[in-house]
């Protein structure tokens, strides 16, 4: 499936990550990725959505050098991840899904270790700034095992940012964290984006993608189903609905209203009009005029728009 989009105007067209014809099948025979083509643009927040086992983590792991692809190529900042792995990996920070840390190390030591591991000389000022921004400064001398789950998650982010990466992968960053921390993380991600860091996040929480992402990719069974700017996705695939709560129930929809895509509830008391979210001419005023002319009275009306979650569920179930 070819999903390189030229119509995307919100970001400079230089891809910071360019993935071409990427395939991965595990020894078990599971085809985790099938012919993935994807460009990630510099400075964007890209959300990769997909059900469990869709291939999100495999894709991230290949870009980061943890899993070896069967075929295809990946370039980060123009550097091939295999041939020029040093330059490519130095640009990447990864916050993995699981809280993998050495529990006996202190917060300061583990962040310092990550910076050194990624080839940079010590910079206590940078580490201090990072720990302060992540509210970890007061915990810097504590062993990681003494921290709460949320704090450990912050440590993982500090480790990933220790070497000042240009690209940050967040694999399910808010899985299992409380609402407050989730909000804090969203703020942090936006702040990072403002400093020019490209963010790629995988998430189960569609709300998270809806809140933060500039573009969204949907992956299922190792195949990239679509990649679109969030606004465009909501516009083209989203639905809006006008609901009229009638004063007197109807037995059936009058023929004069057949020009609209209407549905009547079983008890005849609710009339629903569903239309595309991106439709410029909604024909709602005309519908309301016609309803009035037919003498149909309503006691209340409401409108709603489908969420990204509705779109995602529809997309995934349509293809299955």
């Amino acid at each position: 499936m070819e999903l390189r989009e030229g119509e995307f105007d919100d970001f400079p067209m230089t891809p910071i990550i360019s993935i071409s014809q990427l395939n991965k099948t595990y020894a078990s025979g599971l085809a985790a990725l099938r012919n993935i083509n994807l460009d990630i643009h510099q400075g964007e927040i890209f959300a990769l959505l997909g059900p469990n086992g869709a291939g999100k983590t495999t894709l991230i792991s290949i870009v980061c050098g943890i899993v070896t692809p069967d075929s295809g190529s990946v370039r980060v900042g123009g550097q091939d991840i295999i041939r020029d792995y040093r330059a490519a990996r130095a640009m990447i920070g990864l916050v993995p899904q699981e809280l993998h840390t050495d529990m006996f190390e202190t917060v300061w030591d583990t962040v310092r270790f990550s910076r050194g591991l990624f080839g940079l000389p010590g910079n206590p000022a940078h580490i201090e700034r990072l720990l302060r921004e992540l509210s970890l400064w007061n915990k810097r001398k504590l062993e990681i095992m003494t921290l709460s789950g949320g704090m450990k998650r912050r440590v993982m982010i500090a480790k990933a940012l220790a070497h000042e990466p240009r690209v940050l992968f967040l694999d399910e960053p808010t899985a299992g964290v409380d609402v407050e921390l989730r909000r804090d993380m969203w703020a942090l991600v936006r702040q990072l984006r403002d400093t020019g860091v490209t963010i790629i996040l995988t998430t189960h929480y569609i709300e998270e993608a809806e809140e933060m992402a500039d573009r969204i990719g949907v992956i299922r069974s190792g195949e990239l189903m679509l990649v679109k700017p969030k606004a465009e996705l909501m516009k083209t695939l989203g639905k809006r609905q006008l609901t009229l709560h009638l004063l007197e129930p109807l037995e059936k929809i009058p023929g004069e209203l057949s020009a609209w895509n209407l549905a009547l509830s079983n008890d005849g008391s609710v009339l629903e009009y569903t239309f595309n979210a991106g439709q410029e001419q909604t024909r709602v005023p005309a519908l309301l005029r016609c309803v009035h002319e037919l003498g149909i009275e309503f006691k209340d009306l409401s409108t709603c728009q489908s969420s990204l979650e509705d779109i995602f569920v529809t997309l995934v179930s349509e293809r299955s």
């Binding site: 943890i66 130095a90 050495d102 529990m103 990550s114 591991l117």
Partner: peptide, 14 residues
Amino acid sequence: FTGTIYEILSAPIS
């Protein structure tokens, strides 16, 4: 064992 090997494997080190 702890999973921290991810950091070694993803670092720019031969």
